[in-house]
Amino acid sequence: MTVNVIFFGALIDAAGTNKTEVKNVSDCDSLKSKILVDYPELNNYKFLIALHNQVVKDNLKLNEGDTVALLPPFAGG
């Protein structure tokens, strides 16, 4: 199963890309673990996870082709 991941803000710089595909993950927790292994720089960042345009609070199941967004806070003004 493949899930699309899009990065925002400083995560784009940290990951070196604005999107990626992650295979063999079934839920949000396993996706997050996999991402942090693939992009260890992201361990230094706080971010929230959004699925289907909704902030994820629980460990939701993922389906083939889902798009997950990783959003960091930033404070510029």
Binding site: A10, K46, P72, F74
Partner: peptide
């Protein structure tokens, strides 16, 4: 509710 905790200062550079 959106961001319960601020990030580490070194991971959030300013403009």
């Amino acid at each position: 509710c959106l961001f319960p905790n601020p990030p580490a200062p070194e991971s959030s550079p300013s403009c």
